[in-house]
Amino acid sequence: MAEQFIGKASEFKDGDRQIVRIGEDEIGIFRHEGEFYAYSNFCLHQGGPACEGLTIANVEERLRPDKTSMGLHFTNDMNFVCPWHGYEYDMKTGCHVKDKSVRLRKYDVVTKGNDVYVVA
């Protein structure tokens, strides 16, 4: 494991992403709400490019106290979706939104000044 330089922080706007190949690994690096997150780009379903699809807010169904439904709503939590079949992963954890045991390999991201490194 070594720190691999992947770019300048100033070139990463919030919401931007990069897909990089480091040796044999393929990694998606997201900048979300100021933080960097890096995950394996190999989806746990059938190996699709997990980090290259749509980023979209999580959907929740709101219930009233009497258990009646208020329908579906977008929340403020952000997910990224594998474009092959739709596995939806939580931006902050890399876990499948419904099954936390399905979790993309996570890589550490280190920033030194304006330089961004992925530990891979």
Partner: peptide
């Protein structure tokens, strides 16, 4: 692509070979 709340995500055009690289 249209995401939540009307946001637009800019993506490259589709290329099946690229999409299926894995």
């Amino acid at each position: 692509l249209i995401a939540d709340r009307g946001r637009r995500v800019q993506v490259e055009e589709l290329n099946t070979t690229k999409l299926l690289a894995h």
